[in-house]
Design a protein around this nucleic acid. Structure first.
Length: 491
RNA sequence: GGCGAGUUGGCGGAGUGGUUACGCAGCGGAUUGCAAAUCCGUGUACAUGAGUUCGAUUCUCAUACUCGCCUCCA
């Protein structure tokens, strides 16, 4: 068996993946802070690591992979949202978690085995903070507990930074109680307005980074295999997680492989609220762009390259998926194509895997196409049932000559995507017949005029040959929202 | 200011020390009243300069440009 190779941020190279325990491969991915709808950038790690999860399950067996993704449900953004809306924190976080799962389901992402919430692991965090203090890696000051970066020699090694460089150009918070400007908060004081827990260092709440260290410890133990997340988390979040964990359990502890997906842009620009190109997964779905199309666009770019979300890519992805989903296959138990698997094993080369799907499509190997697509998280059978991917065609019976040289009964058809109203169908078929009548009379000007007007409404008229040689016609609808009365009014 | 990534044909996007994916668009032909659809055919691209090499788009160095992170952010 070929081995999986993954790019490890820690070593800056692609290396063979060998799990600590093949019977229980453990992967942890940083999940969202739950205060608002997931934006499309949030979806990238979800989709990327979903593919990895599927691949690991394929290689090691579905029962031998544990995937955990947390919800950060204690955070100042959440507090602010609660203060602004007057709603309780729990209400906000519960609702947001529901949205998140719903939206990610739509993208075809499998749910992780574990979805720990930070607030359920406060005791573990406190224990870890206490351990760090005991070992001299952290200190309490003015109600805060801070991690002492100078106490960890390898601080900065994950993200490739040195303390001196960072301090030199730093934009860090200078606080009087910090020994080093880069020291980061493990615990901070809460007042009556903010959520908090009693601790040895006073009433307070955890800093952001400690939750991942504490939760992986609780769920996975001191060591686990893969830790994933967006590249923006590499520093400071992951650097700090690593420092916390390694200072309590040794340099070999915590994640063996660190993986980071590159960022996402929109139409060539950084997605930001100020540019107005900031939108949520839900907004995309509501616009009629299906989750599978979104997934396809994401997977056509390698995860370690910046990905540009564009309308054009979405349209192309939709066309491709429609094309592939027309294939019928029954035997979904067939093993996925070896080349698709090999592409994924090569540091998740999803783009190459998709290329291979195109070849399988062209080779007309339907079972293999379906089973391989499934490994990428596409269920073609299901997609084929969805409105956007389901073609509709209505055909009148094949035409015939009723009276030689005088009467025609040409066949007419209407084709398009998704559901169509009877009114639109009938109006379309009528229009086809009128067009065919002009053609029969060789009134090309009238025929072409009608065709042009129909095109303006979103309908393409095409001549087709019936098997018996009699010309028929077909109307292709670009949209099923065309007003039938407007079609009837066309001359 | 610090750190990092990238620059491939019209667009998107893999990949390789010598045989140069693939998709979309385009072009030519068949076909068509004209089209559409379909079928057949078609593209020698790898930022710039230098170096290593028998040979580099692929390795090394420099330059330019783009982008990201360092601040809540995946």
């Amino acid at each position: 068996m070929t081995e999986i190779k993954l790019y490890n941020t820690k070593t800056r190279q692609k290396e063979p993946f060998s799990p600590l325990d093949e019977a229980n491969v453990r992967m942890y991915v940083c999940g969202p802070t739950v205060y608002d709808r997931a934006h499309i950038g949030n979806a990238r790690p979800v989709i990327v690591f979903d593919v990895l999860y599927r691949l690991l399950r394929h290689v090691y067996g579905a029962d031998h992979v544990t995937y955990a993704r947390n919800f950060t449900d204690v955070d100042d953004k959440i507090n602010a949202r609660a203060a602004n809306t007057g709603r309780s924190i729990r209400e906000i976080t519960d609702e947001t978690i529901g949205w998140f799962l719903e939206d990610m389901d739509a993208l075809g992402a499998l749910r992780p085995n574990q979805a720990p919430r930070a607030t359920e692991y406060i005791d573990e965090m406190k224990a870890m903070i206490a351990a760090l203090i005991a070992k001299g890696h952290a200190y309490a000051a003015e109600g805060h507990v801070l991690f002492d970066v100078n106490s960890y020699e390898k601080y900065g090694s994950l993200s490739g930074r040195s303390l001196d460089d960072m301090i030199a150009g730093a934009r860090v918070e200078i606080a009087p109680y910090k020994r080093n400007p880069m020291d980061f908060v493990l615990w901070k004081p809460s007042d009556s307005e903010t959520p908090g827990w009693q601790s040895d260092w006073g009433y307070g709440r955890p800093g952001w980074h400690i939750e991942c260290s504490a939760m992986t410890r609780a769920l996975f133990g001191e060591q686990f295999d893969i830790h994933g997340g967006g590249l923006d988390l590499a520093f400071p979040h992951h650097e700090n997680e690593k420092a916390q964990s390694c200072c309590t359990a040794g340099e070999d502890s915590f994640a063996q492989v660190w993986m980071h997906n590159e960022m996402l842009q929109v139409e060539g620009k950084k997605m930001s609220k100020s540019l107005g190109n900031f939108f949520s997964v839900r907004e995309l779905l509501d616009k009629g762009i299906s989750g599978e199309v979104i997934r396809f666009v994401y997977l056509s770019t390698h995860y370690r390259k910046p990905m540009d979300w564009t309308e054009k890519k979405a349209r192309e992805a939709e066309a491709t998926l429609r094309k592939w989903c027309t294939v019928e296959g029954k035997n979904i138990d067939v093993k996925p194509d070896a080349e698709v698997v090999a592409a994924l094993m090569d540091d998740l080369n999803t783009s190459a895997a998709i290329h291979r799907l195109e070849e399988l499509y062209k080779a007309d190997d339907r079972d293999l196409l379906l089973s391989s697509a499934k490994l990428l998280g596409f269920d073609f059978a299901k997609i084929a049932e969805s409105d956007w991917a389901r073609p509709f065609t209505y055909e009148t019976p094949t035409g015939g000559v009723l009276k030689e040289g005088v009467d025609y009964n040409p066949s007419a058809s209407v084709i398009g995507w998704g559901p169509i109203s009877d009114g639109l169908r009938d109006a379309s078929l009528n229009l086809v017949h009128r067009w065919l009548a002009y053609r029969r009379n060789k009134d090309w000007a009238a025929a072409d005029g009608l065709k042009e007007h129909a095109r303006e409404l979103g309908m393409s008229l095409m001549a087709v040959r019936s098997p018996n040689g009699i010309n028929g016609g077909s109307a292709k609808l670009e949209s099923n929202e065309i007003d039938p009365e407007k079609l009837d009014a066309l001359k």
